[in-house]
Design a protein around this nucleic acid. Structure first.
Lengths: 335, 335
DNA sequence: CTGAAAGCGCTTACAG
DNA sequence: CTGAAAGCGCTTACAG
């Protein structure tokens, strides 16, 4: 039988009101003496507050919900770590829900769960919400923010990402600086994220007078297989590949090895993400490394602002190029 | 303003009792006609039930809580996928909480959160609960199960793991069958899991007449660094290394490469876990592959049994050896 | 098939 | 500094 404040009230000969005040430390509304008694008895009884009751009466929750995709995104963990860190500091609880990335049904289910619980805010990580579901989210009135996805065509929806255009641009320029002219970008999809990365790539190419062949842009879904296929398809048409995720880059690296192509001597490979995966392979992959943990931290901070009724802006964070050994100077074609 | 059943009752000229029955589909307690009206109005009003209220009155929840370690365990995702799959089928919600592995404070916080919400069950993945915290969990009266950790000295606490002893035993025998005699096991800790794996290793060695040198058993915490360090330390004292996790094995593999040691020609490497990580590196690592998804599925099923008041047993699941290219026949010493 | 009523465990104006 | 009371949104015996 779980103890309630009623039990504590009985034991201490105080009212439930006073017990409640003491347990919530409403300073000034109780005496030191009562407090001591109550805390003592609460401990003896192993009292645990009932969140359902608290939330029902206060109509607000101390819970942040995080929705992540159930498919393998190897960076979600890092974002969550950032979220946890800030949440802990602010005394908030975090619950995580898996939702399929492309399955509107599963998205809806996760969303319903979260809305039923009237959490104080929702952070959506790397999920393209189906538009009906985005509508549900909006109408719920619960503050939300998209992390690591952009959705630029909707003014009400803020997001936090790394500067995708600049990552594409800078990474491509890094390869160009190493003497590469025939460069492919592999594994981006047709979402904003993908378009921006490709946009950055194109601008860098064009600024340097290189017009990409059609097949230098290989679309995909940021997967290992996208990278592997591209290598086989492109063969020696390019001297460098920019993978739009670490997974793409590793897929490309392994396929190259399996095809007897030497990385980086015959083919340079670079990636966008820069998770530990790039350190687990040999050669280590040079990457535009996103500040995932910061995305999570800023996410919570912005969400709290929104919950306070403040206007917040979408954020595009910076990044850095972390070098591995997967990019070589292109001797053959350098001037 | 969120709609409640009261609003629906007013609009439909029915009582809240009837509305509640219809919304919960208590067949037999309402007419088709009323049902149609209620459902219609509920939709119009965008009604979402308030879980806090439901849980307060029914005193039970439809939520399974999953506690995972915040440190990098690359297999937790797979277990969670299994959990999600079964939970979805049973109409349960899953919430995930991160808790530090070695930080009793963080464990306590996660535990409190979960107990406050009186979830229907708790699944603890790969966390060694500090004993005070285990006590808290027990006293809460909430059914729980440990996944991928064993805690054999406590009869009240059930767990689901892969057969750790047999994994150590079979993997070692696999290496012995390939002509290896000087074999190290690296990265196990002093928990039950670690002891069992090492126990299996020792038995296989001894049965084949090989007495392990002291330094062939390198303790650790299943980390990349454990693997890397062991390679440098052991040099050519052994011809094969059994990593107690994929991370250990990859660390060993990379350090070997960095030290100019050829895998598998000069050193064979094997691992326990068998996640996708073993497929991302070259050579692919031969591994005793745990059925993580099944662990998750069985976890939910057993938890539900427990919630029904049934007695459940701890489970030790089978596994299979998945071959890569990281183990070679040891020519030099084979008879 | 339907409704009135009690109650889940808590918080918080209001009054003293 | 303390208490009595109302009420959060829902479910469910009980009575009809």
């Amino acid at each position: 039988m779980k103890a309630t404040i009623k039990d504590i009230a009985r034991e201490t000969n105080l009212s439930v009101a006073t017990v409640s005040r003491i347990l919530n430390n409403k300073t000034g509304y109780f005496s030191e003496k009562s407090a001591k008694k109550v805390l003592q008895v609460a401990k003896e009884l192993g009292y645990q507050k009932n969140s359902a009751a608290v939330e029902l009466v206060t109509k607000k929750s101390q819970v942040i919900a995080v929705m992540i995709s159930s498919t393998q995104t190897n960076f979600a963990n890092h974002i969550i770590e950032g979220i946890q860190k800030v949440a802990l500091a602010k005394g908030l609880n975090v619950i995580i829900l898996y939702a399929g990335e492309d399955d509107p049904e599963l998205q809806k289910k996760a969303l319903d769960t979260v809305i039923e619980r009237s959490v104080m805010g929702i952070l959506v990580i790397a999920i393209e919400l189906e538009s009906g579901n985005l509508g549900v989210l909006k109408r719920s009135g619960i503050p939300y923010l998209l992390l690591s996805t952009s959705h630029t065509d909707d003014a009400d929806t803020q997001f936090i990402t790394t500067d995708n255009f600049k990552m594409g641009y800078d990474a491509t320029n890094y390869l160009i600086d190493h003497g590469h002219k025939r460069i492919a970008i592999v594994g981006s999809d047709h979402s904003d994220t993908g378009r921006l990365r490709i946009g950055g790539y194109e601008q860098a190419m064009v600024e340097n007078g290189f017009i990409p062949d059609d097949d230098w842009i290989q679309y995909g879904h940021y997967t290992y297989t996208d990278g592997a296929k591209a290598v086989t398809k492109l063969r020696s048409k390019v001297t460098a590949i920019l993978g739009s995720s670490d997974m793409v880059a590793v897929g490309a690296l392994n396929q190259a090895k399996d095809n007897g192509i030497n990385v980086p001597a015959d083919l340079s490979i670079m990636s966008i993400d820069g998770t530990e995966l790039t350190r687990f392979v040999r050669p280590r992959i040079t990457a535009a490394a996103q500040p995932f943990e910061t995305i999570g931290e800023k996410g919570v901070e912005q969400l709290l602002e929104k919950a306070d009724g403040k206007q917040v802006e979408s954020l595009q964070l910076g990044f850095e190029i972390v070098e591995g050994e997967s990019v070589a100077v292109n001797e053959k074609e350098s001037e």
